[in-house]
Design a protein around this nucleic acid. Structure first.
Lengths: 226, 226
DNA sequence: CGCGGCATTGACATTGATCAAAAGCTGTGG
DNA sequence: CCACAGCTTTTGATCAATGTCAATGCCGCG
């Protein structure tokens, strides 16, 4: 979720004063599911995966967060409802939740912005449920590539070629598949000349039209010049 | 989502004056995905399924809404992001979205309540993604029964025995399964004496402990006296 | 009574998971 | 710089879970 829109520079500065900029290395945990909630975070650099894990170790990544997004906001009885893990090196501003809530009390329109950001996140999540519930493996992977391409394109990260910052296992945990199935889906898409692999991590989208058809993805996805 | 909490009676009355009580029959559509958004709704009676459908007809139910909940709030470019369909006869209060937004401007704490309600919905959705992404068919069905039991228990509907108001096809569309798989899961749970079927629609939970174990469902589920 | 919708069950097909092996890459230390 | 260890990805072989297709039965309603 993203609540930049409603913040003018002055209040953004005030808000930033509530929290400190912090950094995490790739693969570090920003916050753990079940831990008492302290701060939430607004990403300035990098990509974070938000996940839940069952007792037996099965993990589901429920959202991706990129620069501008907030995360670590949701709680169950005062404990983090999810885990946040850095997929890249990450910089984020950490806000003490209580101070933030107090700040929101003083700036009512911020609450509206918050509601708006949450609405967008909830809408996005609805699409992800459709993807996980109804699409075949190759469709899910195609959808994922479209989503990442759009997310990174909208936020910053260069998209030509497209570096995912996801390992196969993370894609699997995001899409409700296994590593092997994700790998095979990539191979399929290669064979059909829809994508090419630059590195295991980095993709050239050869036929964005086709990719978004396969992924049932509405908005346009640009072709990556190889 | 539910924003009763923040509303005292006086303001609730004012708010209600913004919208009119309306009724729908079972299986009627409250609003369609893609239609221009007019009102959103606060349910007073009945159960509604919120869904998205692909062009080829595959449908995913992304949320259930019961009395006290709001729905029809999410939009993409001013059009409903989802469809709302009555699973039972439904009564709801319809609020013109623009009037509501204006009202929220005048009552800032309502915006906070809205954000809180959206947060709860988003947290719930996270769990559903875990269910769909990682659980086996029988686990999903068990999880569904726990969820329904808790939802109805918390809101109103009698829970002994538990009437679902879902057809098999709707359960399937909620859990990312097929009718037949859902039916087989019910049969399994019957065979294991975890549940009994009163009617195809109505279940007695014989062993809630076991059911919530199977469904990986945290909070307690009461036993239904048969 | 007979029709239509829904649920159940069985037989079979297919997808995706699991198990296993091999190849590629990365970083470390000699 | 090379060799080796550890990790990740790919690919193949097989298995299991779930989807698909079809038949049957149940139930409510005209």
């Amino acid at each position: 979720m993203n609540l930049c829109g409603a913040l003018d520079h002055i209040r953004l500065a005030q808000l930033l004063a509530l929290g400190g900029q912090r950094q995490w290395d790739k693969r570090q945990i920003l916050f753990r599911e079940g831990d008492p909630m302290g701060s939430f975070f607004k990403i300035t650099q990098g990509v974070v995966a938000v996940s839940r894990t069952l007792d037996d170790g099965r993990r589901q990544i429920v959202a991706l967060r990129a620069p501008g997004d907030c995360l670590g906001y949701l709680h169950i009885g005062g404990n983090y409802a999810f885990q946040g893990e850095a997929l890249t090196d990450v910089e984020a501003c950490a806000f003490d939740r209580r101070k933030f809530d107090a700040f929101v009390q003083l700036h009512p329109d911020l609450a509206s912005a918050l509601a708006e950001a949450l609405s967008v996140a909830l809408t996005q999540t609805g699409r992800n449920m459709l993807v996980m519930g109804k699409l075949w493996a190759i469709e899910r992977v195609a959808s994922f590539l479209c989503e990442i391409s759009e997310l990174y394109g909208a936020r910053r990260v260069s998209v030509t070629p497209l570096t995912l910052y996801f390992k196969r296992g993370e894609i699997a945990d995001y899409l409700g598949l296994t590593i092997e199935t994700v790998s095979r889906a990539f191979s399929q898409l290669k064979k059909r000349n829809v994508i090419a692999l630059i590195e295991s991590d980095t993709v050239a989208i050869l036929d964005g039209e086709r990719l978004s058809e396969i992924g049932k993805f509405k908005s346009g996805v640009k072709r990556t010049e190889p």
